[in-house]
Measured scan of single mutants.
Amino acid sequence: SKICLVCGDEASGCHYGVVTCGSCKVFFKRAVEGQHNYLCAGRNDCIIDKIRRKNCPACRLQKCLQAGMNLGARKS
């Protein structure tokens, strides 16, 4: 099975251009559409994995963007 390129959980498919799990898919959509201005309490290098993905939305969003997630991406 495929793994989420953001948190490493089991992926549910290709979302916004990137193979991700459902949790990261929903997080990314809400983060971008809600125009959240997340700030990292650390050094913008928090570990984002299945267990810690909820700890720092700033670093999670950064990881989504680095993976290439794009709200305008067509479903493939």
Score class of each variant (00 low, 15 high):
Y16S: 07
V19H: 07
G22R: 06
L61W: 13
D9C: 05
C7F: 00
V18W: 02
R74T: 15
G68F: 01
C4A: 00
G22F: 03
K25N: 15
K29S: 10
K54H: 06
G34I: 06
S76I: 04
E10S: 11
P57L: 05
C21W: 00
H36T: 12
C14F: 05
R53K: 08
Y38Q: 06
G8N: 03
V19Y: 03
Q35F: 05
G13E: 10
A41H: 11
H15Y: 09
L71F: 03
S23K: 13
V18P: 04
V19P: 13
Y16W: 14
R43T: 13
C4R: 01
C24Q: 00
R43G: 13
G72L: 12
K63Q: 05
V19L: 09
Q62A: 12
G13F: 10
I48M: 14
R53C: 04
C24M: 00
C21H: 00
G42I: 11
T20I: 07
Q62L: 14
C64F: 02
V19F: 15
G22P: 09
C46G: 02
A67M: 15
M69N: 02
K29F: 04
V6C: 03
G42A: 13
C21I: 01
K2M: 08
I47G: 07
C59K: 00
C64H: 01
C64E: 00
K2S: 04
T20N: 15
C64I: 02
S1C: 11
N44I: 02
G13R: 14
S23R: 07
G8K: 12
Y16I: 04
K54F: 13
N70R: 12
V6D: 01
K29A: 14
K2L: 06
V26M: 09
R53A: 14
L39F: 11
Y16H: 12
C46W: 00
D49N: 09
I51M: 14
C14D: 12
F28Y: 07
G17L: 05
A41E: 15
L39E: 10
E33Q: 10
R53Y: 03
M69P: 02
Q35R: 13
R52E: 05
K75S: 15
G17P: 04
A58N: 11
N44W: 07
L61F: 11
T20S: 12
C24E: 00
L65I: 05
K54D: 11
R52Y: 03
V26E: 12
G34H: 08
K75E: 15
C59S: 01
E33F: 05
G13D: 14
Q35D: 15
G22M: 11
A11W: 03
I3T: 04
P57R: 06
N55C: 11
Y16D: 11
R74V: 14
